[in-house]
Design a binder for these strands. Structure first.
Lengths: 112, 112
DNA sequence: ATCATCGTGCGAAAATTGTCGAACGATTGA
DNA sequence: TCAATCGTTCGACAATTTTCGCACGATGAT
């Protein structure tokens, strides 16, 4: 039972800052990254249950090609996880800082 | 001698991560930010001596409106500096991490 | 085998962004 | 005053990105 879908990922040293920043500059993708950071590996559909599938594929592909996430096929679904270690090795603290500074999604007022 | 040109800047708490990341995701603007980090306040024309003025204005305006730089008029020129403190207060370590990870990128013709 | 579900690729349309010439006002120096 | 320089705005165009319907192959369940 060979893996049906094979995904291309950039090597650690191929991950480029501009592409990562661009990937994270989209609020929708940033919320996806936040969910991935909180839940670990998730089914792709959880990242956007209300989105058209082709739109979801577009964003997950962009995140994958920029080196932000790792994607693997599991049966007919698609599991996605954040490349924490690779990103941390390449750009220490970046993801934490970005996610920490992105509270504006929820209308919660809590600033210290 | 009232200041001729007045520039609008977002407050510190108005600086939003997606806009900052988008501003930094452009290689040209990222190289501008690096120059600003190295030299401090610089004349706007130093950020792109070979660029058409309107293109230069476009990028500096985007950097200003996203909260990355502070712009002030000095005579007929335009001085620009990085909002180090504000960015550090809002997203600790972000600029350092980004600039640190952008050294090995293709040195187009900016590095001299 | 049949059918429903999932992700992907294709293609097109809409929206956003980047580039840049031209005109304009402001400033500086002569 | 006059001319040169600078930054901005406007407008148009090119390039990129986003959205999404559709058809297709693969997978899992009946």
């Amino acid at each position: 039972m060979a893996p049906a879908r094979v995904y291309q990922h950039p090597e650690v040293d191929e991950i480029a800052i501009p592409r990562v920043l661009f990937a994270l500059s989209e609020p929708l993708r940033l919320s996806m990254v936040r969910m991935l950071a909180e839940r670990g590996e998730v089914d792709s559909i959880e990242l956007g249950p209300d989105l058209p599938r082709s739109t979801l594929t577009h964003h997950t592909s962009l995140l994958r090609e920029s080196g932000v996430v790792f994607v693997r096929a599991e049966g007919r679904k698609c599991l996605i996880r954040l490349r924490d270690d690779d990103l941390e090795a390449r750009f220490p603290g970046l993801i934490d800082t970005v996610l920490n500074g992105y509270q504006e999604a929820a209308p919660t007022q809590e600033d210290a």
